[in-house]
């Protein structure tokens, strides 16, 4: 599967409080969450992001609170992929569980510029910055993640086990 979109670029340690501030956690409705996604570090994001756009960030993306509302908000915004140098543990797990594609690639993270058009292939891990022509290869998903993805996410995976 391939995705393509415009890059929104952020720095290191983007925490879940700025991805979706706690003052909006009184609802878990994706439509409500996407309206406030990234609001505290990029007030223009929610109004400008288009379906398929790609988020690019540095180290420790998604650190802080365990709120699954964070990957839900990003996914609901239309973001098709988050590329980061690295992800915080709970956010990584939550993203897989809710079906938000993520890729770890420090080189792509440092070289892709805000506004570049980026294409990524989930099967090969190939990331192409169409604006600059540079290509990068992301670390592939570990085997255990593939199993959950093959089942269609953690919920159907658990449903299958419950039915055994």
């Amino acid at each position: 599967m391939t995705v393509e979109g415009k890059a929104y670029k952020y720095g290191d340690n983007v925490d879940t409080d700025v991805i979706i501030p706690a003052r909006y956690l009184n609802s878990s409705d994706p439509g409500h969450l996407k309206a406030h996604c990234m609001e505290d570090i990029d007030p223009t994001f929610a109004g400008s992001v288009a379906e398929g756009d790609i988020m690019v960030a540095g180290e420790n993306f998604g650190c802080g609170s365990s709120r699954e509302h964070a990957p839900v908000a990003i996914k609901a915004s239309g973001i098709s992929l988050v590329i980061a140098s690295g992800f915080a543990r709970i956010f990584y797990r939550n993203s897989i569980n809710v079906g938000l594609p993520i890729m770890e690639c420090p080189e792509a993270s440092s070289k892709i510029n805000a506004g570049d058009v980026v294409r990524a292939d989930f099967d090969t891990g190939l990331i192409t910055d169409i604006t600059t022509g540079e290509t990068f290869t992301a670390r592939p998903f570990p085997e255990f993640i593939k199993k959950i993805i093959d089942a269609g996410g953690l919920v159907p995976y658990t449903g299958q086990k419950a039915g055994q």
Binding site: S28, S66, R67, E68, P71, I90, R93, N94, N97, V98, F144, G153, L154, V155, Y157, T158, K161, A162
Partner: peptide
């Protein structure tokens, strides 16, 4: 350790989860 709502849901249902 901390997890998200999907892990919570599946753990409430099954009493187990995966760890690295």
């Amino acid at each position: 350790t901390g997890v998200g709502s999907t892990d919570l849901a599946c753990a409430m249902a099954s009493g187990s989860t995966w760890f690295k």
